[in-house]
Structures are given as C-alpha cells and as structure tokens.
Design a binder for these strands. Structure first.
Ligand SMILES: [Mn+2]
Ligand SMILES: [Mn+2]
Ligand SMILES: [Zn+2]
Ligand SMILES: [Zn+2]
Lengths: 233, 233
DNA sequence: TCTTGACACGGTAATGATTCTCAATTACTT
DNA sequence: AAGTAATTGAGAATCATTACCGTGTCAAGA
C-alpha cells in the first residue's frame, strides 16, 4: 500500500541532472542532456519521473505562463521572474504571507491555500543586446516598436524547439519563381500570364506568401520578392 | 497595409457571447455556446477571433496555470483566484504597483514590466460540498487526504472535455473475471491457475487494473475487485 | 462598372507537449 | 534466491492550438 520510490538508474540520473541545471529546464531539455549519459532512455521516462518526483516533493513543477512546464530543483517556496524576450527564468524571493493575509479579507469565500507571483520584464542581457541593435540599426524601413521584440521571442522559442517548416506548395513556388526572375515589381496580371494560373488563385497565394515574409507589397497590388523569399526557393 | 478589423457576424457573436459569460471561458466552451446560435461556425474561427480580439485589446487572453487558455471580457488589469477543486476562476482586484515597486530593488537587472498574481484555494461551494461529503462518508477505507480532492478535480475536468476511455484488453478481462467470480481475496497464483496465463503477465495486468481503479490490494499480493471493476465487466 | 486584393470564413491537416499502453525488465521484500 | 510490484522503452494516443487552403465578401481604385 505504501508507495515506495525505487531508486532506478534513470530516476537517479534525472534527479542529478536537474540538480546541475541552474536554469529551470523543460522536460525536453532535460531529456536531451540525459540522453548523453544514457542514450536509450525514453522521453516518457523523463516525463514520468519528473511527475513522480514532484509529486513526492523532491523537485518542483513550475507552471509559468506559456506552454511547456519547467522543473526546479529548489523545493523551497519561491517565485519567478522571466524575460519576455529570451524566455529565461530566474528566481525571486518574496514574502507571500503578507500579500496573502492582505487578500484574505476580500477572498469571496475562498479558503486560500497559496499564490503564485510571476514577474516579467526584460533581463539585463537582452537590454544590453537591444541597445546595441538600436545603435547599429539605420536601415529600419518601418517603425520598430515593441512588436519586433515580441516577434523575436516568438521566433527564437520556435526555432529552439524545432526547425520552422516553411514549405511552399506547388502554386506558391510558381508565383515565387516568377517574382524571382523578374527584376521589377509585379502585379497579379503579370504573374497570371507567366504561370497560367487562375488570378484568384494567385491572389490567395500572394496573401500566404506575404504572411510568410517571402514577398512584400511596397505599393498596393504590386509585389516584390524578399531575401527570405529567395532563400526559400 | 492598415489593419482594419471587419466586424463580421462571427466576430460580433464571439464578442457578445464572451460578454455574457461571467466565468472565464475556454475557447472550446465558447465555441459550444456559439454553435447554438450559429451552428456552422468553425472552431478555428473562434480561436482565430479570440486571438485577433485580444491582440486588438478588446478582450484579454489569460494564461492561468493549466492547459487551456481562458478568455476574459474585462480588459482592465486585474488578477485571478481559482479553485483547485472545481477549477472555477474568479476575479480579484489587487494593487500591483506596490508589490512591483517593492520588487524593483532586488530585480537582478531585470526591467520589470509587470507581474501576474494568481491565488488558489477552495471556493465556498466546494467547501460546503466537502463538508457534506465528510459527514456522509463512513466507509472510507483509506485515509482521504488532499489527494482525493485533486483526483476529483482531474477526473471531472477530463470527463468534461471527453468521455474517459476505460477499455480492457483480453488479459485484463480474464483476470478481472476471475476476481469477480471469487468472493475472497485472490493472490497471483490463484489467478494463474484459473486463467492459465503466465504469472508474469498477471502481475503486469494487476498493476494496470489497480491503476484504473478496478481492483484494490488490501494486503500486499492480494487483490479484490472494486465496484468500478464490476461495472467495467 | 469592373478589378483587385485584404480580410475572413469553414473544414481539415498538422503540430507540439504530454500522457497512456503494454510486454519486458528490474529492484525491493521476504 | 524467489516472488512480485514498480518501472522501463518504444510508440500510439490525446488534447489544445495553429496552419493551410480554397472560397467568399467587401471596399477602394482604375
Ligand atoms: Mn526556481
Ligand atoms: Mn477576470
Ligand atoms: Zn532576456
Ligand atoms: Zn470550487
């Protein structure tokens, strides 16, 4: 009846490897590290044990906003701060008792058992990086506001997990090829003539290509291939 | 080039329906409600518009701990409290500026742009329910700690999304049938004799059955079918 | 008026993270 | 050493979310 935790080699390694991690790793990241020492370990085993160990209170499972869960060797109560740009997560110590007791008055009948405080911002490294970029950046064609930071974060996080698939379908490739061969800006009609595709189809593909960043439309109804577009061919 | 939001019928409905929701609904829940008024709407449209509307600042996307994202008609800054048992989410107002300025001293170089505070506990309804259950519960064979509450929450949340699949394989059914016919507690050997299965196989199936809640092991190595197990046959 | 292309839609496939399944193996108990 | 329940690896399944694609609608410009 008593649930004894067997200390298998796998479990031991997972615990040890998490202990060596100072950034709060995801199950996947931990799996990659452990594979080097035990190549036949399964990702499911890593997930399983991280769950079991956190259930047993030997590690902590973090549910920071975002998709992947992260794991923490430190079991003592503490909160976190994360960088919205590079996604790193650091510890912060914060006395929750004060804020909880403050909240208990207007708790709407809830019996409060805890709270999670999550700061977010930009870490010192990213601040420095941004400053450098801003200096070097002179040919910024369009206003570069907070959006591009967000885009960067999104892109980097995606690239990190898996390579981004940017496949072109038959029609998109045709359209892109026409734009690649023609030096000047093209309109729908030009492309239709060159590809013998239905103009409606072309409009649809142009939209998709623009969304992917492979073409731009400097003037309404006129398109031009981008560097990314050329690279994609 | 300019991003104009067209107010389509679908978008209007989504906005309106979210406005009528006082609990912070998931995309899926909202979809189910909207389908009643517009049966041909696509789930993808609901997701797409919730994203667009929150991007435009007309609604808010919440990343409360847990898997599904939730959406909030209230765009003013506020935090949330959720019940770990029934998963309902309520609003709380909290002055973040104080706690943020408090944190800024020891911010480890971060430029803090905000924070999310998330209280959790047990709502008044669940508290009342628990009290009732505790009174009625006299045949609680094993210590009923916080664990069963958590189990309940997990189960109910799963049931809500899809019906739980509890199928038995060939061997599991055989084992369960032996336990069902025998009134007393059985050991592995008994089952082996009755089923002509390999004892190793039986051990494995017993583990699976126990995990599913179809059998219990009141004494080590001795098994007994549960009500759920009988129901499953 | 006729084109055009941006936005949007519905349906469906794909994706990413996580969990489940199951026969085989392993680590504890006795 | 034997017996047995916990654990494993490999892969399938699940769940929430997003991407894709062909089509439709609308408003603005030729
Ligand atoms: Mn930490
Ligand atoms: Mn709210
Ligand atoms: Zn950073
Ligand atoms: Zn509740």
């Amino acid at each position: 009846m008593k649930n004894i935790l067997r200390m298998t080699h796998q479990r031991e390694l997972i615990l040890e490897e998490l202990g060596n991690c100072h950034n709060h790793p995801t199950a996947d990241a931990l799996y990659e590290r452990i594979k080097k020492k035990l190549p036949r370990i399964s990702l499911a085993t890593v997930y399983r044990n991280l769950e079991i160990l956190s259930e047993a209170g030997m590690i902590r499972k973090l549910e920071i906003s975002g998709r992947q869960k992260r794991f923490d060797k430190e079991v003592e109560q503490h909160d976190h701060i994360f960088c919205v740009q590079c996604r790193r997560i650091d510890d912060i110590k914060f006395d929750q008792s004060r804020i909880i007791s403050l909240e208990e008055d207007q708790s709407q009948g809830y019996k409060i058992s805890g709270c999670r405080i999550e700061f977010f911002g930009i870490c010192s490294k990213c601040q420095a990086k941004n400053k450098k970029i801003q200096k070097n950046e002179k040919d910024c064609t369009e206003g570069c506001t907070g959006d591009c930071i967000k885009d960067n974060a999104k892109k980097s996080s995606k690239k990190k997990s898996k390579r981004k698939k940017r496949k072109l379908n038959e029609r998109q490739r045709k359209v892109l090829e026409v734009l690649a061969t023609s030096d000047n800006i093209c309109v729908n009609r030009d492309i239709a003539a060159a590809t013998s595709l239905d103009p409606k189809q072309i409009s649809c593909q142009l939209t998709a290509l623009k969304k992917k960043g492979f073409i731009t439309s400097p003037i309404r109804c006129q398109y031009k291939i981008t560097k990314a577009g050329k690279a994609a061919l």
